[in-house]
Simulated scan of single mutants.
Amino acid sequence: MIARLALQLAVALQAAALVACASGPVQVRPGGEPPATFATALARALPWSVGVYGARPRQDATGDERGDAPPWTDRATAARIGAGFFISQDGLVVTAAHVVLDAPEIVAKLDDQRVLRAELLGADSDADIALIRVPVALASAPPFGSSSSVWPGDWVLAVGEPYGLDRSVVAGIVGGRSRHFSEDGALLFIQSDLSLNPGNSGGPLLDTRGQIVGMNLRTVVGMIGGPGLSLSVPIEVVRQIAAEIGGQGGVARPRLGAGFEDVTPLVALARGRPYADGALINEVRPNSVAAGLGLREGDIVVGMNGWPIGDSADFARALLHWRSVERVRITVFREGGYRHLKVAP
Rank of each mutant, 00 (worst) to 15 (best):
G203L: 12
R255C: 03
M215F: 07
N216A: 02
P204M: 14
R218H: 06
R255W: 09
V221W: 10
V213A: 10
L256I: 05
G250W: 02
R218L: 03
G210L: 02
P204D: 12
I245R: 07
S230L: 01
V237G: 00
G249K: 13
E244R: 04
L205C: 08
G210K: 04
G202Y: 01
P254E: 06
V251H: 12
L229S: 06
G202V: 02
P254Y: 08
I212F: 07
V251L: 12
G203S: 13
R218F: 03
V238Q: 03
L231A: 01
D207L: 11
I224Q: 00
G225I: 08
G222A: 04
P254A: 11
D207K: 06
N216Q: 03
T208I: 13
P234D: 12
R253T: 15
G228I: 02
L231H: 02
R239N: 09
R239G: 04
V233M: 08
L205M: 15
G214E: 13
L205A: 13
G225L: 04
M223R: 08
G249C: 14
V220T: 11
E236G: 11
R253P: 13
G225E: 10
E236M: 03
G225M: 10
I235V: 13
G225D: 05
P254S: 11
P227G: 04
V237Y: 01
A243Q: 15
G249H: 10
G225S: 06
I224P: 00
R253Y: 07
R255F: 10
A243R: 15
I241S: 09
D207Q: 12
L229G: 00
Q248W: 15
